[in-house]
Amino acid sequence: MYSDNSASMAPNSSQSEEPAPSEGEAVLEPCEGMEFDSEDAAKIFYDEYARRVGFVMRVMSCRRSERDGKIIARRLGCNKEGYRVNKRDQEGALRKPKPITREGCKAMIYLKYNKSGKWVVAKFEKEHNHPLVVSPREVRHTTDEKDRKIQELTLELRNKRRICAAYKEQLTAFLKIIEEHSEQITMKVQNVMNNLKEYEHVQQEHQRAGNLRIQG
């Protein structure tokens, strides 16, 4: 399982360049069933995997809940996914083609949000249809801005969780106080009821004694 602490894996332009993995060095890759604590944690992991393997991650389609609109599934893939569409200018002529950057690559991971609150890898396509180039400097340059945004969102999420935890602790303490007061009130009510019963019993005894005196 991978928690939000994986944000430390995200590249940072202020740090020195990490060496590319050597020929014998294993690269941890995604697999079906792998879990993450958040969508951002999954993005950071896959982005680091992409950098080490030699491609650039692209955040692609998502699926939202029909009930509340929240994202419940996300597809992450290679920046060479799909094909470029040639555009025409205002006069209808084809524009000068740009260098080919998309090659219909199908490499990707498909993540789903489950009931336990985790993001799970439901599908993993490993193979690329183009050469992979491990160039930390180039890949890092293209992902710096996105990584900074992910790190900011991850930090904000952590802060929100800390605030929620503090509120939960305060609420728990408040409920405990209410519970203690409720127990005290229950005991007082019970004492009052016992006193009333005792008073009624004494009254009945006095009435019984008075009836006996009258009959005598």
Rank of each mutant, 00 (worst) to 15 (best):
E103V: 10
P97K: 08
F36N: 03
Q207D: 14
L171K: 06
I72K: 10
G210A: 09
V53C: 00
H130L: 07
R75M: 09
R58D: 06
S3Q: 11
A10G: 15
C62N: 06
T142L: 13
E198H: 08
V192A: 10
R162S: 03
E127N: 13
I178R: 12
S14I: 13
E48M: 09
S61T: 06
E183N: 11
Q207R: 12
R161A: 04
V139K: 01
L28P: 00
D147F: 06
F36D: 04
P11I: 15
E145Q: 09
E145M: 07
A93W: 09
I177L: 07
F174C: 01
D47Q: 05
T186P: 00
R88Q: 13
A173N: 10
E18M: 13
H130G: 08
N12C: 15
L196T: 10
M9D: 15
V139I: 15
N12S: 15
E180S: 09
H206A: 10
E66W: 00
L153E: 11
R95V: 09
T143L: 11
Q151R: 15
N5W: 10
A165R: 06
D4Y: 11
N5C: 10
H206Y: 12
E32C: 10
K70C: 07
N5Q: 15
G117N: 13
E183I: 12
A41C: 09
R208M: 08
A73Y: 02
E66F: 02
N195I: 02
R213N: 01
F36Y: 11
K146P: 00
N114G: 08
S61P: 00
L94E: 08
E81T: 07
E48N: 13
Y113R: 13
Y113F: 15
R64C: 05
D4F: 04
A93S: 09
Q15G: 04
A10R: 07
N129C: 13
S16L: 14
I150M: 12
R88C: 03
N114H: 14
F174E: 13
V133A: 05
